[in-house]
Design a binder for these strands. Structure first.
Lengths: 142, 142
DNA sequence: TTAACTGTAACATTATATGTTACGGACTGG
DNA sequence: CCAGTCCGTAACATATAATGTTACAGTTAA
C-alpha cells in the first residue's frame, strides 16, 4: 500500500518525548535518535503541534515537550495528525461513466472502505504512547 | 497514507467480471470501463490470477473470467492479491541503536501494527465481490 | 550581542505508481 | 497455414509524493 513512514516516525518522536518526561528536546537531538535530518523532525513536530500533541518553544534552550500525558495520546491521534488522506485511494482517472459498473463501483466501495477505516481507528484508539513506552522499557524480546 | 489505487482497481475489475457473469472480457474492454491502459489491466489480472481469483485464456476470443463465485471472493482476498507489503511502513533509515528508545520502538510498534492489520483483514473478509455487485446494481444513492 | 533554537521556504533526491510502446507467442476461424 | 485477436511481459517514459538538504529570518536565554 506504499504507506508513508510518518506514522512510525511520529510514534517514535512522541515516545522519545514521553521517555524524557518533561525535558524539552531539540529537533537535533530527536533527529539523532530517529536518524534523519532535523528539518524532517521539525516538520513532523509542526504537524503534531497542530494536533495538540506537542508544544514547542523557540529560542535558545527551547525544544519540544508532550502537550498531554502519554496515557492520553492514542495511536489513532498520531495517525490522524501525521497521515493525510485515506488508507485506500481511488483510481486516478475516473471510470467510464457509460459503463454501468464503472459508474458506481467507486461510491459503493467507498461506503465499505469508510467502515473499515472507522473500525481501524477504533482499534488504534485503544493503544497509547504510554503503552508503547512501556513496551520499550520492558526487557521485551527483540 | 498515499495509498495505491490498486485495491480500488482490483475490485472494479472483479465486479465487472462478476457483472458479465461467465463471459470472458478482454483487457481492452476492461480498460475501457476503468479508463486506463490495457497493459495496466493485464498487470492487475496477472496478480489476481496468481491469487486464484481469475482465469485468463490467451489467443483470439480469449479474455478473463472469475475463477470463483463472487460470493466467495472477499475484499480481503483482493487486498492481499494486489497490495504488496504492509499498511504501515517503518522509517527508511534505521533508528539510532545507541538510543534506548530508538533501539526498540520499531519492534514494539510492529507488534501493535500487526494486530491492527489482522483485525482489518478480518473486517475485509466480511464483504465480498457479490456484495459490491449488489450495491452497484441496486438503485442506490449516488 | 552572541549562540542556540524553531519555523519555513526552496530546492534536490529518491522511490514508487502508473502510463505507454513494442513485440513474442498462443489461439481461433477461415 | 494464414490472418487477425488477444495475453504476457519487458523496457522505457511520466507523474506524484515522500524524504532529505541547504539556507536564512525570527526568537529567546544568558
Amino acid at each position: 500500500m506504499a504507506a508513508s513512514t510518518r506514522f512510525s516516525v511520529g510514534v517514535h518522536i512522541l515516545t522519545l518525548l514521553a521517555h524524557e518526561d518533561g525535558r524539552a528536546l531539540t529537533s537535533d537531538y530527536i533527529a539523532g535518535s530517529v536518524n534523519t535530518n532535523p528539518v524532517v523532525i521539525r516538520r513532523m513536530l509542526a504537524l503534531l503541534g497542530k494536533a495538540g500533541l506537542v508544544t514547542s518553544t523557540e529560542g535558545a534552550g527551547g525544544g519540544s515537550t508532550l502537550a498531554k500525558r502519554p496515557e492520553r495520546i492514542a495511536l489513532a491521534d498520531v495517525y490522524r495528525a501525521v497521515d493525510p488522506g485515506t488508507l485506500f485511494a481511488e483510481s486516478r482517472s475516473d471510470p467510464n461513466p457509460l459503463c454501468p459498473v464503472g459508474r458506481s463501483v467507486h461510491s459503493v466501495l467507498r461506503r465499505h472502505v469508510e467502515q473499515f477505516e472507522t473500525r481501524l481507528e477504533k482499534e488504534m484508539d485503544e493503544v497509547t504512547i504510554a503503552d508503547v513506552l512501556k513496551g520499550v522499557r520492558s526487557p521485551a524480546r527483540k
